[in-house]
Structures are given as structure tokens and as C-alpha cells.
Design a protein around this nucleic acid. Structure first.
Lengths: 141, 141
DNA sequence: ATAGGTGCAAAACCTTTGCATCCGT
DNA sequence: ACGGATGCAAAGGTTTTGCACCTAT
């Protein structure tokens, strides 16, 4: 069972550790992927039957807000959630939807640019779209 | 009236140039911003009363697919559309929602990285979030 | 004339909200 | 016990779909 750390963190913030919350944190900690709210819900119900989708939404929102988990958007109309495992970015396959993760950050916003427009940077997101190895990757089209 | 070029392009692709489509392309060409489908709809109706929201959605989808316009997502639950005016990125204010555009691309995905994971890159999106000048920009928190 | 496009209504889908009940502390 | 958290139902908002009518070519 994973997720000890986040559970502890969440408790320490003053939130109650319910069965549902424990299940949500376990699901995310134990999954390398990027789950939609509904996917989290399906998996949570295997650990904690009867859990309501509303509860999942409420907690995903809360945990995202508290910075315990990450929320990404791959251009479709729903959010995806992932455990917080450091700054990283995504390569999304336009055909099969597979998501490759890259830990190297290819984004370098220069200080002087931000200063020039008076912008105080908090976070950034970067997603690349294309075709994975199985769907026509490499340098071929 | 703007949008001559895109209208011509769209026609040349074999699509019929209806009043509604002309209005949509004019609205986007004449706007520097990033409009939600509903915002496009409101403006289109001023040029072409009676136009239906469904029509706007259908055409925004079609035009995006054909690469005539761009579609972005700023993390909230709706898409935004913009005329295609070259590669650029966005700085989104977390407080007032203002969007600054930067034409300089701070993303440099290395060829060897892509080759290593067998990914054929088609496009990428990058959005930065923080606070604009009026909402606490600069280097201060 | 005819296929493509539109309008309308309805639905699909994701997400949020209100409120009574429940349970972690 | 108490206040926070959950479940249920219902609604909200965006986007899609089906189908009859219209219109650009």
C-alpha cells in the first residue's frame, strides 16, 4: 500500500482522513498514469465501495488546491490527476492517447522577459502532441 | 473587414462560404484575444443575427481541424479560439484572467530526446500562470 | 438540383451545489 | 458531541447529435 506520505501530509494540514480520502490518495500514489476523475472514481470504488463521484471530485479539487496532487489538461474536455512526483511534462500521442512523461524541462522563461511584461511566474504547463513509436513515431510522418 | 485570407483559404479547401462562416472568420481575425465559443457566438450574432450556437461550435471545430484557427485551453473547463497568427505562447494571470502573449518560444525540445522515446512531434502548447503587473507582478509575490 | 450547411431541440458529458445524514477527531 | 465530510439528487455549463429544412455552388 502506497501513499503513506501524502496521507500524513493531508492529515497534518488538519483534514480528516476518511476511508474515501485514503483510497483516493492510494489510487493516485499507486498509479504512474494520469487519471480522469471518473477513472479515479472507478478505482476508488474497488477499495472503498459506495464512494460517490461527488466525493471524488470534491477531494481531487481540494488536494489539487493544497498541492498534494497535480492536475493536467491534455486539450480534451476533462481534467486528469496525477500524484505529485516532481516537475515534469507530457508527450501525448494524437492517435492512441498514450502519454509519455519527460522529467527534463525544456522550458526556459527568461527573467528579463518576465520583468519586461511585469509578470510574476508561479507555474507553467507544457504539453507536446504528436505520434508515439507505435503510431508512426521516429522522424517519419 | 478582415479575414480575407482565411475565407479564401477555407473556400479553396472546398467548403461553402456561408454568412455564418464568414462572420466567424471575421470575428476571429478582428480580435487579438482568445475567445470562448460563447464569446465568438455573441459577436457573430451581431454580424449575422440568428446564427445558432451549434453552428458556431461545428465550425470552430472544423476550422481548428483544418488548421485555420487555433484552440487553447487555459486550465478552466472551456476551450478558447484565436486566429492563427504564428507560433506563440501565453502568460495567464491567476487573479484577473488577463492573457499576455509572447511570440518568443521558450520551449526547446531536443531532437535526440524525441528520438530516444520514438516520438514524432507535431505541435506543442505552453502556458504559464502567475500574476500580471496589476495583480502583483514583477518579482514580488 | 443537390450535397453540404444550418437551426432547433434534445441529449451527453463533465463538474458543481444544496441539504440531510454520517463519522473522524 | 461537534463540525467537517459524505451521499444523493438535482442542476449548471459546455459541447455534441439527430433530423428536417435551407442554401451555396
Amino acid at each position: 500500500m502506497s501513499g503513506h506520505r501524502v496521507k500524513r501530509e493531508f492529515s497534518d494540514m488538519g483534514y480528516r482522513m476518511t476511508r474515501q480520502r485514503a483510497a483516493i490518495l492510494e489510487v493516485l500514489s499507486g498509479t504512474p498514469g494520469h487519471l480522469t476523475a471518473d477513472q479515479v472514481y472507478q478505482r476508488v470504488r474497488r477499495k472503498c465501495p459506495g464512494t460517490n463521484l461527488t466525493t471524488v471530485y470534491r477531494n481531487l479539487g481540494l488536494m489539487t488546491q493544497e498541492g498534494l496532487i497535480g492536475k493536467v489538461n491534455f486539450g480534451d474536455d476533462r481534467s486528469r490527476f496525477e500524484s505529485n512526483r516532481g516537475h515534469h511534462h507530457h508527450l501525448v500521442c494524437l492517435k492512441c492517447g498514450r502519454v509519455l512523461e519527460i522529467s527534463e524541462c525544456p522550458v526556459h522563461l527568461e527573467e528579463r522577459l518576465l520583468k519586461a511584461v511585469g509578470f510574476n511566474l508561479i507555474r507553467h504547463q507544457f504539453e507536446a502532441f504528436g505520434y508515439c513509436e507505435d503510431c508512426g513515431g521516429g522522424s517519419a510522418g
